[in-house]
């Protein structure tokens, strides 16, 4: 109602001095911009269909303001209302699983390349803190490795023919 009141209240404009206050018009007043201020009553609306578009303009502008306000306001109470019913939930879950089956059948997963040579270790500290191997095992490993190293060192090539052969290269 306050909005309607200020809409028709001409004397307020002198006090406004361009600053917005509670009497500031929310809409640009199409009526006061024209030299002739037409007065409407309910009979005019009934008899003259030309005035109807103006009315709808105003209505749509008001609706727009209402919508903008609604999108800018954080209404916590209204957030709760968007709860799914149990049967809706089950129904949708079923739909998703069947659609997913189809999608998987038609589109195969891209082959995963190994991103890293090393494997991720979820809890590295556990691995690092784990008990070290026993002295016997360590001995066994070191002797085995040293024997293996010695064996590799002794590998020799026994050649039965000359390893370097002279081709008949003309001098």
């Amino acid at each position: 109602m306050g909005c309607c009141y200020s809409f028709f209240c001409k004397e307020d404009s002198a006090q406004q001095r361009g600053e917005p206050n509670e009497r500031t018009h929310l809409l640009v007043d199409p009526v006061s911009n024209s030299a002739n201020i037409p007065q409407y009553n309910s009979e005019d609306f009934l008899n003259n269909s030309n005035t109807l578009p103006k009315k709808t303009d105003e209505q749509s502008a008001l609706n727009r303001i209402l919508q903008e306000t609604a999108t800018n306001v954080i209404d916590v109470a209204a957030l709760d209302s968007h709860n799914l019913q149990q049967h809706e939930y089950v129904e949708r879950m079923r739909q998703y699983s069947s659609k997913l089956q189809q999608a998987c059948a038609s589109n195969k997963l891209p082959v995963r390349h190994k991103l890293c040579v090393l494997q991720d270790v979820p809890i590295p500290e556990k691995v690092i803190c784990s008990e070290s191997i026993s002295a016997d095992d360590l001995n066994l490993i070191s002797t085995a490795v040293s024997k293996a190293a010695a064996a590799i060192g002794e590998i020799k090539v026994e050649h039965k023919e000359d390893m370097v052969v002279l081709f008949r290269v003309p001098d």
Partner: peptide
């Protein structure tokens, strides 16, 4: 991320 293509398809259709 690579899995989402199929999953998005399933949801977008519904």
């Amino acid at each position: 991320d690579p899995l989402l293509v199929n999953l998005t398809l399933a949801v977008a259709d519904t």
